[in-house]
């Protein structure tokens, strides 16, 4: 009788197994459809399996803990100076990568006039000190080819250069954007009229050989409280303007009268208002926000 029961039990188990096998092989098993394979060891006793697993666990958890602690304490042991220098060097590395892929022919999208954000948001007051009179303003330009002293220009002399208009998106490093219509002189037109010096003293050719020009431009407010540095390719981009109008009006004081930079090639922090002096230079110029830990390049 008990033998019969055992045979019966065996039969039931066998049927169960067959059913399981059937289900594993069923057409509605994604693993089966994609031919996913299992990787199994040869069978062993439970004790042996447990022993092998314990060894693997010990190794796995020790290596994992060591890696985690190295990561956490490695980051913590790094001094603030080391961390800051690592992050600054990463910005510089990112800048080099960006310059490899940079093409001056790529343009920022322009927008129809009805999309202009009114009124334009005012932000940033460094360099905008009180008591400034735009009527008596002049622009100093240094680092020109053929002369060692500054050239002094009036607003009328700048307005005499070809006028360019654009309606582009101004992107603040904080994360907000506004659409603004600008009018002014392309910086590249300005540089064609007032030629920058070259690295080797040869004749400047900004159209065919911009790489011979000194690589940087420094711009400072009249009170020297705000200052930005630009790389030559970005400043010669066709959408970088020395702007004197915003949304069809002469620049008001809070937007940088009488002359400011406007360009979708970089964040707003680089688009200096109330420019007092421009200098073409071989040395990387200091930059107000880069000194506070922001990306010097900040290029789009």
């Amino acid at each position: 009788m008990s033998e019969d029961k055992e045979i019966l039990l065996e039969k039931v188990l066998e049927l169960e197994r067959a059913k399981d096998l059937h289900e594993d092989l069923a057409a509605d098993n994604t693993a089966r459809i994609l031919n996913e394979k299992r990787r199994l060891s040869s069978p062993m006793s439970e004790e042996e399996a447990r022993k092998k697993m314990t060894g693997r666990s010990r190794r796995g958890f020790l290596v994992g803990a060591a890696a985690a602690l190295t990561g956490i304490f490695g980051w913590r042991w790094m001094s603030d100076e080391t961390k800051q220098s690592l992050l600054r060097r990463t910005f510089e590395f990112n800048e080099k990568v960006a310059q490899v892929f940079y093409r001056p022919t790529r343009l920022s999208p322009e927008f129809p006039p009805e999309q202009i954000s009114l009124p334009p948001r005012v932000n940033g007051f460094a360099g905008m000190s009180e008591g400034f009179d735009p009527a008596s303003w002049t622009l100093s330009v240094g680092g020109l080819a053929n002369r060692s002293d500054d050239l002094v220009l009036t607003l009328d002399q700048i307005k005499a250069l070809p006028r360019t208009e654009m309606t582009t998106e101004l992107k603040c490093v904080e994360g907000w954007t506004i659409i603004v219509s600008w009018a002014g002189v392309r910086f590249s037109d300005f540089a064609a009229a007032y030629l920058p010096k070259t690295i080797d003293g040869s004749l400047p050719d900004i159209v065919n050989h911009p790489e011979n020009l000194v690589p940087y431009v420094s711009m400072v407010t009249p009170d020297q409280a705000y200052y930005v540095g630009w790389d030559m390719p970005s400043i010669l981009h066709p959408q970088t303007l020395l702007a004197y109008e915003i949304n069809g009006q002469p620049l008001p004081l809070e937007h940088g009268a009488p002359l400011r930079l406007a360009s979708p090639t970089k964040y707003g922090i680089k688009q200096i208002k109330r420019i007092g002096r421009i200098e073409f230079t071989a040395d990387r110029p200091k930059d107000y926000w880069a000194e506070q830990g922001y990306d010097w390049y900040s290029g789009h």
């Binding site: 197994r17 399981d20 594993d24 299992r38 199994l40 062993m44 693997r56 666990s57 796995g60």
Partner: peptide, 17 residues
């Protein structure tokens, strides 16, 4: 963490490595 798990050997197996 370890890569491995213990499974019952008497379960019917589909093709495996």
């Amino acid at each position: 963490i370890t890569g491995y798990d213990i499974v019952d050997a008497d379960k019917p197996q589909i093709e495996h490595a």
